[in-house]
Amino acid sequence: MGKFYDLLMQDVRFVEGLNACMNCGVCTAICPAAEIYKYDPRQICDIVQSRNEEKIKELLLTDTIWYCGQCMSCKARCPRGNTPGLIISVLRKISQETGLFTNSEKGRQQFAIKRTVGENILNTGYCVHIDIVNPKLHPEQGPVWKWYYENKEEIADRLGANYNKDGSGALRKIPQQNLDEVKKIFEVTGGLDLFNKIEKYSESAAKSMNIYFEKEGINNEYFFQTYMENSGKHEN
């Protein structure tokens, strides 16, 4: 077997997600991403089960694997019990571990997700928190959200929350011991290692693209490049 197929087989989600695809295309028919993007989960199943190393590598290098929205409608519909959405997750993992993700516009976006959602998990214990849904980065949230964001403690606490304070309740400050243990879990299980790889390969990509990069935070050109760049070449 080849290098990339071996890596796929090491992940239980790949073992679980691919039995024997008969290429019926039901996954593609039901897939919200296939309707919008140049994306065909049937083809992806076909490529990985063919074990063609060159074609698998091409998947890891290009935008294709980043189009899936992880709704998992494919899992519900596949007559063979396959889950293309799981196969995608494993391909994405390998693309990041090998650094190939920085070769595509959609792959490079992992840096923006790491700097927002990833940092938030470690720093606050939340994936998403009202404090990071800044109306300037989220104009689609509209004026009611802006009003809420600007008065968050007053409003959230009226609604029974415990914004940024000790004790139980929505939006509470999560005690440090819990954050320490979550961080330790990331360290032991490879979560921090993946974060570090995303950082390392992204810094290298920024350098080769001649785009300003900073070691922390979102106030740098490379962050906004990955967060906002859209070449318009992805849609059907």
Binding site: S89, R92, K93, I113, V117, C127, N178, I185
Partner: peptide
């Protein structure tokens, strides 16, 4: 309603910045 509870990492996991081993352990 436990004050110590925290994210399951779900959004990070499905946007592929959190490995499955990490999510399972969290």
């Amino acid at each position: 309603d436990d004050p110590n509870q925290h994210t399951c990492t779900g959004i990070g996991y499905h946007s592929d910045i959190v490995p499955f081993d990490t999510t399972m352990t969290v």
